[in-house]
Every structure is written in C-alpha cells, then in structure tokens.
C-alpha cells in the first residue's frame, strides 16, 4: 500500500512540476505561431505595378506539377483590354488544393513569377469543390493573420 502512495505522490509531483513549466501549445486561433519565411501555403497569382496580371497562361506550372493539381486555359488578349502584360493571358487558372502537395515547383517553373506560394495555410473547407481555387480566388490572396 505504501508503494501505491509513493507512486501517487511521484505522479502528482510530475504533474505539479509541469504546471509551472512553459506551455508547448498555444491557444489557436487567438495566437499563431511564427513560420519559416520559406513556408509554402496556398497559391496566389501576382500582378505588376500597373495592375496587369503577370500570368501569361504558358502552362509550365501545369506541366511541372507532380500532382496534376493545376489547370490553365489560355487565350489571346481581348482587343483593347490586355488582361496580362502581354497578348496572351490565362482565362482559367485552377489549383486543386486537395491534390496539391505544396512542393513549390509551379513557383519555380513560372517564367513570369506570377504564381507564388503564400504563407496562408488555413485551407479547411466543408466541400470538395471549395478546395478548388479558381483564378479570382488566387488573384485575391487571403492574408495570414
């Protein structure tokens, strides 16, 4: 019986010691961790200073993507409304975030530095379709708090 009491006291000792140690968890979402500056989260499509899209729809990201998560459909720029900085732009640009493995190869392959991986990592959705980011969504990247 004495052994039992000993063990109990020892156990409580460990617990009470841990009470005053710094905590390993944080109270998400009020508090958030600092990530590496190279962290790769959700994609975004960048624009240049004139507001023209950098993406020309070349499809290299699509070609390089090991998970086949990207779909690009390009077209000639409409008369008088150059969407991108040149005469070709992407009509559709979709990233399937369920398929994506966030390897960053699209970013590396992009010749115009249009697709970039932001640090945003809060990707949960209640619907599979919501996990496919379309062009509109990618042009307006959410900011990580």
């Amino acid at each position: 019986m004495l052994d039992g009491v000993k063990a109990l006291i020892k156990g409580l000792g460990v617990t009470s010691k841990a009470l005053f140690e710094p905590r390993d968890t944080i109270s998400y979402p009020e508090k958030r961790r600092e990530y590496s500056p190279r962290f790769r989260g959700k994609h975004m499509l960048a624009k240049d200073t004139d507001g023209h899209e950098l993406c020309v729809g070349c499809g290299l990201c699509e070609a390089v993507c090991p998970a086949h998560a990207i779909r690009v459909v390009a077209a000639s720029a409409p008369e008088g409304n150059p969407v991108s900085w040149t005469n070709r732009y992407s009509v559709d640009y979709e990233v399937d975030l369920i398929r994506c493995i966030f390897c960053g190869m699209c970013e590396e392959a992009c010749p115009t530095n249009a697709v970039r991986l932001t640090p945003f990592n809060e990707l949960a959705a209640s619907n599979r379709l919501d996990m496919i980011a379309d062009k509109e969504e990618l042009l307006h990247p959410p900011v990580r708090k």
Binding site: E62, V72, A74, A75
Partner: peptide, 9 residues
C-alpha cells in the same frame, strides 16, 4: 489554334 493549347495538355 493561337494560344489554345500546349504540347503537354
């Protein structure tokens, strides 16, 4: 075919 396809897609 202008700006419609790429050899890989």
């Amino acid at each position: 075919y202008h700006h419609k396809g790429r050899p890989w897609n």
